[in-house]
């Protein structure tokens, strides 16, 4: 986990919004990768096509869009509404697949299509972090719990055999239980005098119930153990530090509905940052905020950039886009390099 820098009001307001193509933070931090590393594409979209089907109508949103993002780079995808910029971001984050099922989107040269479902889940959980325009916090959870969510999810991402084993055990219980239960009903109809009739239904019922409870109990016990684990306590401390760094230390137990828009977005960024991802994918992160709050959020993102994080940000606002290292424009489903950058 890299060091967290608290944004200050001065840096927010004094940010050189007109500075395009140059890292806005000015001085690279210790976490900034070397030139060689930065030349290697971290994330690539090569001639990506994406078609949505709206009933019988096929709408081609991306018509061969290409984008290469280097490590530590802040790329802004600029485009009009409906130009496909959010779609491209979703494809990069493996929330959605292109027409070739992800074979044209690559992370460190490896197509997402080659990843197993387990790897895909890990990719979304730990490699990328999403920030959405409408924050997308879970209303039932507190600020701290929302922030902790990626860590909690991350610990449950296990290989398929794990769930297959649990499923098989459940199926075995069911398969064994049904005929045994039927048999016990048969014995019970023999009458109260039959020595088996008195014991068997209870024995079998108890065995089935016991097996089912053991199955559920294993899952639940692990939940309890995980909650008591050192790792969970560390995650909790990390989430708390992160939120404190984002100025939300006094809001840890609040629900999202009790927060302002800016605060909600800061929680969303904290959540995206918790698992220390390589890439931050931000979809109109300031689109739902007033100008002042939007600047604060941008400064928060810039702070992460200064620490070496790769950022891909979607926006329709050219002024916001200028905070990025590079701007690419999406027009008619294709990427056009920004003439200025």
């Amino acid at each position: 986990m890299s060091e967290i820098v608290t944004p200050t009001p001065t840096s927010t307001t004094a940010a050189p919004l007109s500075c395009v193509g140059v890292p806005s933070a000015g001085v690279p931090s210790a976490g900034v990768p070397s030139a060689g590393e930065r030349d290697e594409p971290l994330l690539e979209a090569v001639d990506v096509r994406k078609t949505y089907r709206l009933g019988r109508v096929a709408v081609e949103v991306l018509k061969g869009a290409s984008l290469s993002v280097r490590r530590g780079e802040w790329v802004a995808i600029l485009g009009a509404s409906g130009s496909g910029k959010s779609t491209l971001l979703h494809l990069l984050g493996d929330l959605d697949r292109d027409d070739d099922n992800g074979s044209r989107v690559r992370h460190l040269g490896r197509p997402l299509a080659d990843m197993s479902p387990l790897e895909c889940n890990r990719y979304r959980n730990a490699t990328v972090g999403f920030v959405f325009q409408f924050y997308h916090l879970l209303p039932e959870l507190t600020v701290l719990e929302n922030t902790l969510l990626p860590a909690m999810v991350g610990r449950t991402i296990r290989s398929g055999w794990h769930w297959t084993a649990i499923g098989a055990a459940g199926a075995a219980c069911g398969a064994a239980g049904a005929p045994l239960l039927a048999a016990s009903l048969g014995f019970s109809s023999l009458g109260g005098d039959h020595p088996i009739a008195a014991v068997l239904p209870w024995a079998i019922g108890g065995a089935i119930l016991g097996a089912a409870l053991a199955l559920i109990g294993t899952v639940e016990l692990r939940t309890v153990l995980e909650r008591l684990s050192t790792r969970h306590r560390e995650d909790r401390r990390r989430a708390t530090r992160l939120l404190e760094a984002f100025g939300l230390g006094h809001r840890l137990k609040h629900r999202p509905r009790e927060l302002s828009g800016g605060e909600r977005q800061r929680v969303a960024i904290a959540r995206a940052m918790l698992n220390d991802p390589e890439i931050l994918l931000a979809d109109e992160p300031t689109g739902n905020l007033d100008q002042q709050t939007g600047y604060e959020i941008l400064e928060l993102i810039a702070t992460q950039r200064r620490k070496g994080m790769t950022i891909v940000m979607v926006t329709h606002d050219p002024v916001i886009a200028r905070r990025a290292d590079r701007i690419v424009r999406l027009r008619d489903g294709r990427v056009e390099p920004d003439p200025v950058t």
């Binding site: 387990l118 889940n121 979304r124 999403f130 997308h136 449950t156 991402i157 769930w163």
Partner: peptide
């Protein structure tokens, strides 16, 4: 959708 975006598997 949120849970899927942060990597929650279908089985989860």
């Amino acid at each position: 959708g949120i849970l899927r975006s942060i990597g929650a598997p279908r089985i989860g």
